[in-house]
Design a protein around this nucleic acid. Structure first.
Length: 305
DNA sequence: CGCAGTCAAGGGAGC
DNA sequence: GCTCCCTTGACTGCG
C-alpha cells in the first residue's frame, strides 16, 4: 500500500505551483516558471521517498496555461529532458503519481466549447505523464460532471464523449464518485459501458451512497481496475471535520477513524491519497500507523533517522 | 513592504 | 436571477 498527499508540500520552502496572470503571459515567463515548478517537483518527490510517501498527486499548474490557446510555446519538446528525468526517478523509486484536473473539466457539459477545453486539459495533463515515460497505472482522475436535470442523459453524455477521447487519455482516465451528484453506483454504470476504472473516495461515499457497506463499496471499485493496465485501486481518503458542513474535509488525520477504515480493506491492496488539509503531516502519521500494522514498507535503512 | 482583492476555466443549492 | 459554495495558493496592484 502506498500513501500520498495532494500537490503541495508544506515542509519544503519551494512551490511546484508558481504561476502568473494570463494578462502577463509571455514565453520567457513561461520558461522561468516551468523550470521552477519542475525543480520543486523533483525536491518534493525526493522528500516523499525519504519519508516513505510513495504516492503523490502532481498539481495541475506545472505548465501554466498548459491547455490554453495563449500558450504556443513548445514546452513538450523544450522540457522533455526534465520530464524524463522526473519520470525516471519515479520509476526507480517505484512511486505512483496522478493528476486531478479541477472542476472546470466537465466532459458531459451541454456546451461543446467546455467539452473541447476539457479534452484539451486532459491531453495536456496526460502528456506530462507520457513525457515522464510512465505507464497507464499513472492516472488522471475526474468526476462525471454536471447533472443537468437528468441523471441518465448526463451519464450517457459522459460515455459518448469518453469514446471520442484520444487513446492516450482513455487509458489514463479514471472516474471518481462525488459527494453530491454521482455516486459509486452511477460510476459503475459508466464503467460497465466503457471499462473506465473507478477511483474510490471513502468520504464521498459516506456522503452519497445506496447503502452499500464500506467493505462492499471498496470491493466493487477495486473490481474495475485491471491489475496490469491500471494497477491497484487508487482511492482518496478523508473524513468529516466535526462541527462543519457535511462534506467538509478534516483538518488533520483522525487516527481512530483511519484505523477503523483500514479494517474495511479486509486484505485489499490500495494506493491511498490523503485529502487532508495538513498534507504531508497527516500522511506521515498514516504511514506510521500502516507500518505498525505491517501494511507498509518499513523505513528505508539508508534514510532512517 | 504588507495586505486585500483577484485569478482561464463550471455547476448546483438556496433564496 | 443572484449569491455563495467547492478549494486553494499565489499573483498583483494599491496604499
Amino acid at each position: 500500500m502506498k500513501i500520498g498527499y495532494p500537490c503541495v508540500n508544506e515542509t519544503l520552502d519551494c512551490s511546484a505551483a508558481t504561476t502568473f496572470r494570463l494578462a502577463s503571459y509571455n514565453d520567457e515567463r513561461l520558461v522561468t516558471t516551468v523550470t521552477n515548478n519542475l525543480t520543486c517537483l523533483q525536491r518534493i518527490l525526493e522528500y516523499n521517498v525519504q519519508h516513505g510517501l510513495l504516492f503523490f498527486r502532481i498539481g495541475s499548474g506545472i505548465v501554466p496555461f498548459g491547455s490554453h490557446t495563449v500558450n504556443t510555446y513548445p514546452w513538450q519538446t523544450e522540457f522533455a529532458p526534465q520530464f524524463r528525468a522526473i519520470g525516471d526517478y519515479i520509476k526507480t523509486e517505484q512511486m505512483r503519481v496522478s493528476f486531478h484536473p479541477d472542476q472546470f473539466v466537465v466532459l458531459n457539459s451541454l456546451d461543446p466549447g467546455i467539452v473541447e477545453r476539457s479534452i484539451a486539459e486532459l491531453v495536456y495533463q496526460g502528456s506530462m505523464l507520457d513525457l515522464m515515460g510512465l505507464d497507464s497505472t499513472a492516472k488522471l482522475q475526474i468526476h462525471v460532471g454536471g447533472l443537468y436535470g437528468d441523471r441518465d442523459v448526463a451519464i450517457e453524455r459522459f460515455i459518448t464523449t469518453y469514446r471520442t477521447l484520444p487513446e492516450a487519455v482513455q487509458v489514463r482516465l479514471v472516474v471518481e464518485n462525488d459527494d453530491r451528484l454521482f455516486s459509486l453506483r452511477d460510476c459503475l454504470r459508466v464503467h460497465e459501458a466503457v471499462g473506465i476504472p473507478i477511483l474510490f473516495d471513502n468520504f464521498h461515499h459516506e456522503c452519497l451512497n445506496h447503502e452499500e457497506p464500506m467493505r462492499e463499496a471498496l470491493r466493487l471499485a477495486a473490481g474495475t481496475w485491471h491489475p496490469t493496465h491500471d494497477g491497484v485501486l487508487m482511492m482518496d481518503y478523508s473524513s468529516q471535520q466535526l462541527g462543519e458542513r457535511k462534506g467538509k474535509h478534516t483538518f488533520s488525520l483522525d487516527e481512530n477513524r483511519f484505523r477503523e477504515f483500514l479494517t474495511h480493506l479486509n486484505g485489499l491492496d490500495v494506493d491511498m491519497m490523503l485529502e487532508i488539509k495538513d498534507k504531508e503531516a497527516s500522511a506521515l502519521r498514516a504511514v506510521a500507523i500502516l507500518r505498525e500494522l505491517g501494511l507498509a514498507a518499513p523505513v528505508p535503512l539508508a534514510t532512517s533517522v
